[in-house]
Design a protein around this nucleic acid. Structure first.
Length: 804
DNA sequence: GCACTTCATGTTTTT
DNA sequence: CATGAAGTGC
């Protein structure tokens, strides 16, 4: 078995010699005592509890450099895992920076998935795969599952493939192979979940493919069942570092525990308060349990915050304090006090976007006595990606430059996936999923019937779809135009395949191939570059032409993307290498240097920081998300709260939270109350900005002694008083029934008092009814059709307000 | 087999 | 509303 070492940069130099050569450590300068401890405590398990902005990455990279510098490990003996490619890249760069030269040999610094691919390629045969297996993305996964579902005569309307995919992912996240799925889950997916899971795994093996979850799962299985393999890596990886440990799922946790089981030189870094990926299997429990898992673990707390002002930190702490079962950290800073958190309410989502747009423009020049901010200094962090649209719309109309981070990913676009499917078929002719995708794209007159013929022929002969298609054509099973074009396609794929390899050449008797043959035919070097080949494939297949002839407005953009794709090939040696890379790297940070406001989700913002942060959409139901609370109850709410914590702690100097009373959802107006998290912001650190427009005021027009509503808003406890919420809740109905111009009129105070007993009201689902009881925001209503129900006030409107 | 229609359906978060 | 899936007519 080959050594795990792939890039031994230090070959030849003994550990001792390098240790002698170690110079004093400038990378330790400027670290605070806690950070230093985290760096220097090299042996045994270490848990680094690193709050937001406490210099976690710095400590982590210094630790790596320290391990290298003291000769404890060679670069290729350190296993350093991150969750995102971005984090991996950053760490590589920073280690290089600290060392003062590029890191040549840290082959085992990467994401869980990237590292697992590497490992699995070496040991694929242990789980019945070939080492050139393909990695399916979510899209392929769903399509494959759909095929299975149809084959099992299951109604995929009632039991959608997405649901099954979610289940299977969940099991894989928990490292459960089909035979290990607990009985409690047996009823899943109409009692057939486990069965289909097994079929799916079998099918994946047939296709020589894995999905994302498999990468971890297979490795865990291999480690659990092959002691020798595990031993080999236990010895090899002298030191293990894990970033964002709070985000690990069960499979990753087992993987780490297996690898660290020998020497226990494992250092996990994380922050339980920033665990926001529970929905995809992350277990906060992993970090909470660390000291039990690794008895004698050394816990280091990084609590000095270098990022945010005291007001921002205090507001964040106030919110997160609402969570139970935390490991507990107290962030502190010696920074200037700075601005308070700003809170502002708006009439609706559009106005919120408008206000933020104007505020951003104003802040560029410096406003309200604050320093000027550049656009790059500012970010808008939203809970759900659909919130982005309001901002994009608004910013486009006012010409405010923005960039969306983590939006629709480049490699997920249709044209890119199509193009890559072509590459996949050429590189691995057995890739049936890719073949299916491209047989009839562009249109070749191969509809359902022809494709079924191909499937049948392939199955009968036990060959791939591509080969099946070739046979079907040969046997004249597919007639007419379709048959002719299919023949052309098959021939093309074969020819392109030859072009990846170059021509066959004869090698003389003293051939490098030691098989005793006097002479041998081998492939010479390819005659054209893989970039040229890619262009040839796209052109000759008719794919480029398809978009050139397309008159829809997005066609030019798609062609543009295809060009970009070909350009991206440049940095790879061949198509295989590229495909390998793409399957794991789904990010597309555009590194444009222009000055732009960033818009992204809160999840995407983790690990980032900005001088000024806007947090819009703080409304109950949106944030915290209703779905999260419905599905996971208090746990879900706590995760949402951590998300709020993450959002606030992204801000360095200025944090502006806002909410809108009304929002368009599914094309329908919906009103909601301010987020409960707003109530949890400590008053002392919050400044309420009077919503301009809504109450007839302008910026800062919070004139004391103004209207009663302003008084309410300005009262110390006012913005979360029941009355004000009430106003927000009620105002929704006016929004539905009145023209927008009425926005600026001061709302009659009578409206604040809400519904009256006996009032006739309308509910979306239950229809018309009369109010027979009230308690807080809950109404008891006798519906004409549906009987007596208890309903939250915001789901109800006065019946005479109904516009239809 | 394909293009066009209507209809329904759903919106967290992603390696 | 906006996208995707099923249905309909050529």
């Amino acid at each position: 078995m080959s050594s795990p070492d792939e890039n031994d940069a230090f070959e030849g130099a003994s550990l001792a010699a390098r240790a002698m050569a170690a110079r004093p450590a400038p990378y330790l300068d400027g670290l605070n005592p806690a950070q230093k401890e985290a760096v220097e405590r090299m042996d045994g398990p270490v848990l680094m509890l690193a709050g937001a902005g406490t210099g976690k990455t710095r400590a982590l990279t210094a630790r790596i450099v320290h391990l290298l510098n003291t000769g404890r490990a060679r670069p290729n003996e350190i296993l350093a895992v991150t969750f995102t490619n971005k984090a991996a890249r950053e760490m590589k760069e920073r280690v290089g920076g600290m060392l003062g030269h590029a890191v040549e040999g840290m082959p085992w610094l990467g994401t869980f998935h990237a590292i697992c691919v590497k490992l699995l390629r070496r040991h694929a045969e242990l789980v019945g795969l070939k080492s050139n297996f393909t990695i399916l993305d979510t899209d392929d996964q769903i399509r494959l599952l759909k095929q299975l579902i149809v084959a099992n005569n299951i109604d995929d309307k009632r039991w959608p493939a997405r649901m099954l995919a979610g289940l299977i992912d969940g099991w894989k996240n928990r490292a459960l192979t089909p035979d290990k799925v607990p009985a409690a889950d047996a009823s899943a997916y109409n009692n057939r979940g486990t069965e289909l899971y097994e079929q799916y795994q079998r099918r994946l093996k047939e296709l020589n493919a894995v999905d994302f979850g498999d990468l971890l799962l297979h490795m865990v299985v291999i480690f659990q069942t092959h002691e020798d393999v595990l031993e080999q890596y236990r010895r090899w990886f002298a030191y293990i570092l894990v970033d964002e440990y709070q985000d690990t799922n069960v499979a990753q946790y087992l993987w780490l525990r297996l690898l660290a089981g020998g020497h226990r030189n494992i250092c996990c870094v994380g922050d339980d308060d920033q665990s926001i990926y529970g929905w995809r299997g992350a277990e906060v429990g992993n970090i909470l349990r660390f000291e039990k898992d690794f008895p004698g673990a050394h816990v280091v707390r990084l609590e000095q915050n270098y990022r945010s002002t005291p007001h921002i930190l205090a507001a964040a702490s106030g919110v997160i304090a609402g969570n139970e079962g935390r490991l507990g950290k107290e962030l502190w800073t010696d920074a200037e006090e700075g601005e308070k958190i700003r809170l502002i309410g708006h009439w609706d989502g559009e106005e919120e976007a408008r206000w933020i747009g104007e505020e951003i423009e104003a802040m560029q020049g410096g406003t309200r006595g604050m320093r000027p901010f550049s656009l790059n200094d500012m970010a808008i962090l939203v809970r759900a990606s659909h919130q982005m649209r309001a901002f994009e719309d608004r910013f486009l109309t006012i010409g405010l430059p923005y960039r969306v981070i983590g939006g629709p990913r480049f490699y997920e676009r249709m044209e890119i996936r199509d193009a890559m499917a072509y590459f996949r078929v050429v590189v691995s002719p057995d890739d049936d999923l890719a073949f299916e995708r491209i047989v009839n794209t562009p249109k070749r007159g191969l509809g359902d019937k022809a494709q079924q013929t191909i499937q049948r022929t392939a199955r009968e002969n036990g060959v791939s779809l591509l080969e099946g298609a070739r046979l079907a054509v040969e046997q004249g099973l597919i007639k007419g135009k379709g048959g002719g074009l299919l023949r052309v396609l098959c021939n093309n794929v074969a020819r392109w395949g030859r072009m990846t390899r170059g021509p066959l050449v004869e090698v003389g008797g003293d051939s490098v191939i030691d098989d005793g043959a006097p002479a041998e035919m081998v492939y010479g070097p390819p005659e054209i570059s893989h970039m040229e080949l890619a262009e040839i494939i796209l052109d000759e297949s008719g794919y480029t032409a398809m978009w050139q002839n397309d008159k829809t407005p997005e066609a030019p953009g798609r062609l543009e993307n295809l060009k970009e794709l070909v350009k991206a090939l440049e940095s790879f040696e061949n198509l295989q290498g590229f495909l390998e890379h793409v399957s794991l790297i789904m990010d597309n940070d555009k590194n444009d240097a222009d000055d732009k406001v960033s818009i992204m989700t809160l999840h995407a913002a983790k690990g980032l920081e900005f001088p000024a942060v806007f947090l819009p959409g703080w409304e109950d139901g949106l944030f915290p998300s209703q779905r999260s609370m419905d599905e996971n109850g208090i746990k879900g709410l706590e995760e949402e709260r951590r998300l709020a914590y993450v959002g606030i702690t992204r801000a360095e100097e200025l944090c502006t939270i806002s909410f809108a009373g009304n929002r368009r959802v599914f094309g329908q107006w919906q009103s909601s109350m301010p987020s409960r998290f707003i109530d949890e912001l400590p008053d002392a650190h919050v400044e309420v900005l009077t919503p301009p427009g809504l109450y007839g005021g302008g910026y800062g027009a919070a004139t004391p002694g103004g209207s009663g509503i302003e008084d309410r808003a300005m009262k110390a406890d006012g913005y979360n008083s029941p009355g004000w919420k009430r106003l927000q809740a009620r105002s929704g109905q006016y929004g539905m029934s009145q023209p927008k111009e009425s926005r600026n009129t001061v709302i009659d105070l009578e409206a604040v008092s809400g519904f009256t007993m006996g009032e006739r009201v309308f509910h979306q689902k239950f229809g018309y009814g009369a109010i027979i009881g009230m308690e807080g925001d809950k109404l008891e209503i006798d519906f004409e059709k549906a009987g007596i129900k208890n309903v939250v006030a915001r789901f109800v409107s006065s019946s005479d307000d109904i516009p239809f």
